[in-house]
Structure formats: C-alpha cells, structure tokens
Amino acid sequence: MEGNQPMTEAMYYVLLALMRPDHGYGIMQRIKDITGGRVVMGPGTLYGILTRLKREGLIVLQEESERKKIYEITDAGRQALLAEYRRIKQLAADGAILEGEI
C-alpha cells in the first residue's frame, strides 16, 4: 500500500476474496456472496484492482492458463488486509456511542 492510506472498499473485498486463490470471475462471485449481493463489482473495476494489487505485491499469480489467471494473496497482502480489518473494527467500536441514537 502507498503509505498508510486506507484501502478502497473494492480493494478490501478483492483481498478478502483472495484469502482463497481464485480467478477473476470467481473473485467477483465470492464478493457478491460475502456481501450478500451488496457489492457487485464490474469487470473493469476488478481488472484495475488486480493490476494494482499485483504491482504493489499484495497478490501474486499462482497459476496461469491461456485465458485464466489464478491469483493468491501474499504475506504482505494478508498483513495489509488484517491491518485494514483492525482499523475498520476500531472505527466501528468507536462508533458504539451512536448506538443510543439509532
């Protein structure tokens, strides 16, 4: 990641989906499943994010056939995802004071 910038939502979900190695379409399906259909990622977005995560060393190519590339998360990617998860959890925990308002 560049500095300690928060991840975009799309990046977060792609890393999350890649906790299990998968190819492009599989990643999209998983994200749809994980979010209960809330996040439907377009192919343009997904391809852009895969390229970027690969460049930043957060994912690697595990297997490559003619048209399908299977990606998996790297240690750096796992750490970045965990850090982001903790950050979001902290944000949610801090927001607990809102509970009475809802």
């Binding site: 975009t8 799309a10 439907v40 990622m41 377009g42 192919p43 343009g44 977005t45 852009g48 994010i49």
Partner: peptide, 14 residues
C-alpha cells in the same frame, strides 16, 4: 451483467 466500473474514478484512469 454488471456495469464495468463501480467507481467513476477508476474509469477515469482508462
């Protein structure tokens, strides 16, 4: 079939 881009900023890069 989903639209290509979730966020317009990503499409801007193309």
């Amino acid at each position: 079939a989903p639209e290509f881009y979730m966020e317009p900023e990503q499409q801007a890069m193309t």
